[in-house]
Structures are given as structure tokens and as C-alpha cells.
Write a protein that binds this DNA or RNA. Structure first.
Lengths: 231, 231
DNA sequence: ACCTGAACACCGTTCAAGT
DNA sequence: ACCTGAACACCGTTCAAGT
């Protein structure tokens, strides 16, 4: 009944938290949020379902750990820039790409509340916000606004992907369907949605996302001392 | 085995989509996201689980409908202001309060992708953004940025509540626990998180949320013609 | 047309029992 | 200390059968 040929059998390594997290990410990438199951995970790791609980508290803990591994990897890969603003754009863009490539990350991140994966992002952003010469009390608010915006976009992106997948549509078909729906709304009640429906199918997700980041950055009051450049 | 005394038996009305949605909201409010179950719903409505499927496509449809009812109600209650900016603040504040009072709304809204509940919010915001004299192509980006920010905050708020409830903590205990965790991070790796940890327990969620809205609004380039006031 | 409720194919989690 | 895997208490969804 069991097929073993399809997956490589690495028997050398014993079960460990790291191997479990790695296998979880592979499952999530291949089959989405619903693909991560203790049973599927156990089969992939050639072990019993209960064994996983020795290394991991529960499913929520497992998802948080998977997020953390992903975020750590991505922030290490790309979190610099010539100026603080450029660095923030770079961090945000990297998170956008990560969520775009791993849709489960978008919805899982939001559920991580004040835990490590989110602290890492906040820290990376916050350090750059500090470098922007933002007043002490405002640093928290600016960094939070950026983080909240990133999570909001990510969550919606993830929802789009899942919604499309459930209906066997690709991204373009989905956006077209959405544009059609919006353009059929009552003109008196939905003038804005209708007027903007046309932009839905042609717009560039990533560019629009970064425009939003710039909007927030532009809203910051630069203190007068921020003018001089740091070599 | 079954207790009927606790819930009022209204037999007059037959099953309808509206009654199902109303009962769903009551369940979600009382027991959170996990509280909405076709079995619990069936018992509450004194019917069979399968009967619900005659009026509702599936659970995702049901959640979207519950969101839509909630959003419609709240936007009707409060979506005006003396100026476009004030109206946007009012809409955003109303959504914040709605999510704060009904935490399930925060996480459910994000999964509604381009569907009606979100279109309603976008429309309400978009109409005000237009009134701000924002250039045509930028209207979409500004409205989207605001919406994304609202959803991001809402999703996290919902996660906070659920996280706290799962550990039998109230909001204050939870924030204190988070502040403690953050202040114990490595000072070299997490200077920013540590420095803002103190603000966590004293900050005003709603005020910080609205500050973020203002930040985005301030980032908008007002066109020169926007200066004159409309009486 | 609308409702019933047993049945199906799953879940996450636990826990006695093994090594 | 670590692993096994059956068992428990749930899910969403379907569908023959009823009215």
C-alpha cells in the first residue's frame, strides 16, 4: 500500500526538530496550507504521527517554527541598502517575494502574534527606522505601520492564491474574474470599485506594494538633523 | 442528552440564509473562530447539519457572509466626517472597533480576497480618497494601502486575542508577557525590539492604529487645487 | 423545494506500550 | 530519552431517504 520509491529515504539522520521543520516547509510548498498534516508529515519522515510531538509542541508551534526558518533565511539573504529608506524597501520587497513564492507564509505569519518570526521583521525594519532619524516615540509607530502593511498585503496575497487554486484558476484568470465581478457592481453604490476594476488585471502587484511602502515612508516627518549624509 | 432549555426556541421562522448567518455570528462571538461548527450551528437552529448546505455553499461561504453582514452594519453606522481625511479616519476607526469587538472578523476578513466584504471597505475608503484630490492613477494605490494596513492590524489583533485566550490570559497579561519576552532578547541582535518592549504594555492600540492611518494620509501628495475648501 | 441524519473521509492530539 | 501506532474526539461534506 505504501509507496516509498517517490521520496528519497535518508535513514542516517535521526528525527530532529530541524528535519521536521524542513519537511513541513516542503509539504507546505508543495500542497499549501492544507498539505501540512501530522499524518503526511509522519509518512514523509518514515515515523509515527506521535513521534513528532516529542520535538514539537503542537501544530501551531510547528507553523511558527516553519515561518521562523523562512523569515530568517530571507532576511539574511537581503536586508541591506545604500540608505535606510532603500534598506526598508529591500526588506519589504524580500518579504513580499517570500510570501509570493510561499503563499502559506502570508497567512501563517499573521497568526504568529508577537512571536519570533514577527519580531525578526520588526527588528530589521526598526533598525532602519532609527537610522532615519525618526523621533524616539514615533519609531515604534512607523515600524509597526510598515510591518502591519506588509502583513496585510501578504495575507491577502495568500488568500488570492488559495482562492484561485481552489477553483483551478491561474493568477491571470483570477484577476480577470475579479475585475469582471467588480465592473458589474451597481454604478450608484460602487463608483470607486467600478472605476478601478480595469486596473486590476494590468497592475503590477509588486510595484503597487512598494508604492505603498513609499507612501508610508513619505509620511514621516524628517527631523532637521537628518539632512546631512552619513558616509 | 440534549439540552433545550438554555436556548430560546423560535419555531415560527423557517430556516433561511439570514437566520443561519445570524446564528453563525452569535456562535463566533461567543466561542471564537473554532466555535463555528456545522454541528453546533445545526443544534442551535434545531435542524440537521446537512440542511444548512441548502442555504449556504460551504464553510468558507458562510464565513464570508458573516463578514459581509458585520461590515455592512458597521459601515452604515459610521462612515462620515467633516473632511475626507476625517471620514477615512472614521471608517478605519470603525473597522478597528469592529475587529476588536469581534476578533474572528480580523482573521476572516483577510481570507475574503476580492469578495464583497472587502469591496465594501475599499469602496468606502476609495470614495473619500477621490475627494482628497488624489491623482487618478494613485487613487487605487492609496485606497489599497489603507485597506492593507487595516487588514494587517486587524489580523494581528485577532491573533493576539486567540493566543491570549488559548493560555487563559487577559489582554494585559498577554502584553506583559510579550514585553517580558522581548526585553530578554539578545541586546546585540535585537536592540530595537528591546528598546520598544517597554512601550508594549502602556501603549494605546487604537491610538497607534490611527497614527498609522495618518502616516499614510500624510504621505499623499496633495495636488495644488486641493487647497480650496468645499462648503 | 426543503429538510433529515447517518455515513464518509478526514483531522489534531494523547497515551500505553515498546526500545 | 525517544519512538510506535492504535484510539479518541472531533471536523466538513455528501447523499439517500424522507416530507
Amino acid at each position: 500500500m505504501k509507496r516509498k520509491a517517490s521520496s528519497p529515504q535518508r535513514r542516517e539522520e535521526s528525527l530532529s526538530r530541524e528535519r521536521i521543520i524542513e519537511a513541513s516547509i516542503e509539504l507546505l510548498d508543495r500542497s499549501g496550507e492544507d498539505g501540512l498534516t501530522f499524518r503526511a508529515l509522519a509518512e514523509r519522515l518514515a515515523t509515527g504521527a506521535g513521534a513528532i510531538y516529542w520535538h514539537v509542541a503542537n501544530k501551531s508551534d510547528l507553523l511558527t517554527a516553519a515561518c521562523d526558518a523562512m523569515v530568517t533565511r530571507r532576511l539574511k539573504a537581503n536586508a541591506t541598502g545604500a540608505t535606510p529608506s532603500a534598506a526598508i524597501r529591500s526588506i519589504a520587497g524580500e518579504m513580499f517575494d517570500a510570501i509570493d513564492e510561499h503563499p502559506w507564509l502570508g497567512s501563517a505569519l499573521i497568526h504568529c502574534a508577537g512571536q519570533m518570526p514577527m519580531v525578526r521583521i520588526l527588528e530589521a525594519i526598526g533598525q532602519q527606522v532609527r537610522a532615519l532619524d525618526v523621533a524616539g516615540e514615533a519609531q515604534w509607530q512607523v515600524a509597526c505601520a510598515l510591518l502591519n502593511y506588509i502583513l496585510g498585503v501578504g495575507g491577502q496575497n495568500a488568500a488570492h492564491t488559495q482562492f484561485a487554486k481552489a477553483r483551478d484558476l491561474d493568477r491571470t484568470d483570477f484577476l480577470n474574474a475579479m475585475a469582471t465581478m467588480w465592473s458589474e457592481l451597481d454604478p450608484d453604490d460602487y463608483p470607486f470599485a467600478r472605476s478601478v476594476a480595469g486596473q486590476l488585471s494590468t497592475h503590477d502587484d509588486r510595484a503597487d506594494f512598494l508604492t505603498g511602502i513609499d507612501l508610508i515612508l513619505k509620511g514621516i516627518d524628517p527631523s532637521p538633523t537628518a539632512v546631512h549624509s552619513i558616509p
